[in-house]
Design a protein around this nucleic acid. Structure first.
Lengths: 199, 199
DNA sequence: CTCAATCGAGACGCAAACGTATCGAGACGT
DNA sequence: ACGTCTCGATACGTTTGCGTCTCGATTGAG
């Protein structure tokens, strides 16, 4: 939300936009490292060499700071993919995941528990890291349907995005079965494309 | 692990096995309600009307108590399923999930974040709630292969269990798309069975 | 140039929860 | 029946982190 930036500007805050992003990055790094509880106001202040009072001058409390940090992270890894064919798009998405250029699973893990107590965090996470990737996957599928590669009424279409995101969410727990980075690619080849009647 | 019970017996503990399960149940309930941080020694003691010292007499610290509680929860919802056909087994498993008799997703959510700091918890969770269900699903598939319902080299076989567990792990985040309880059943019908070349 | 407001740094109070210690009451073995 | 150990309950010290407050330095506006 630009509300924060707006009020900050209204109060003649000396925090430049780049500085704001530095603060957000520190929050997200701490989140990824040790989860919501590892994000401490002291920790953020120390890591960014700013006073705690400065943080509380901009954000009323810790949940609002974390939510704002998540909100600024908005970026999608899948959205730039367009190879011309649905199979190519899905394979490229899987390879992006293998190159650690996929959805921010560390953030998903980290916030996964915290949003039991802070529903706002869950919404911020969805808006920020989840929905953009889902939308990108759905766009791939829509293009595939328009090109005639997939039957429009193929019921598997609705499950592609959940399957990909779900696989990312459990691959750690199956690491004895899938050692390596090709987990999602294997899912695409072995399950998704057959279910979509491609290849 | 029976180590705790053994030492408890050796020290002539007055805690009966049923009492021990009561304590574990309190821990698991608190876990499901608010995550690992909501499990407090004071909370467990208050809820079970036992002294905090009693808890520390049996379990050295909080992580060990939670781990022990997870270890005693060992039970599988999918393991009793055997309808005679793979499609029937998978559909029955999906229906069990719909009836809230599936894997303990609340526990998975709750421990999801905590095991960043306590790897023992992750192992306990895997051994207890995850591996039994995975083993049951794999057993269904193995029986299906033996009956000739699925080709033994069908690569989708390895992905059935991850897909089911992954769907459980993300269905909350797709609740606007899949409203209702038939999420896993839809996955089975639309994706899993086609990928397995069944039906 | 001057003044006011924010900055970084950190002390402070407060609350929550871990883990320890204490205490009377009651249960078990001999 | 008696002594011992564990029981439940609770007080205690310690740590940690949130949120407030103070303080000198610095910076931007007029």
């Amino acid at each position: 939300m630009s509300t924060q930036a707006a009020t900050a500007a209204a109060r003649r805050s000396k925090i430049s936009p780049e500085r704001e992003l530095e603060l957000y990055d520190a929050v997200l790094d701490l989140l990824r490292e040790g989860g919501y509880d590892s994000v401490t106001m002291e920790g953020v202040a120390a890591r960014t060499k700013c006073g705690k009072a400065t943080l509380y001058r901009q954000w009323k409390n810790k949940p609002l700071l974390v939510t704002a940090a998540l909100g600024r992270n908005r970026c999608s890894f899948f959205s730039g993919i367009d190879t011309g064919s649905l199979a190519g798009d899905l394979r490229e998405a899987a390879r992006a995941v293998g190159r650690r250029e996929g959805p921010d699973t560390a953030l998903m893990e980290a916030v996964g528990q915290a949003y039991i107590k802070h529903p706002d965090l869950r919404e911020a996470l969805r808006e920020t890291v989840l929905n953009p990737e889902i939308a990108a996957l759905d766009a791939m599928l829509r293009r595939g349907v328009e090109r005639g590669e997939v039957a429009p009424d193929n019921p598997a279409i609705d499950y592609v995005a959940p399957m990909v995101m779900g696989m990312l969410r459990v691959e750690r727990l199956f690491e004895d079965r899938f050692h390596g980075e090709g987990t999602v690619l294997g899912l695409i080849e072995s399950v998704v494309l057959p279910a979509l009647r491609i290849g």
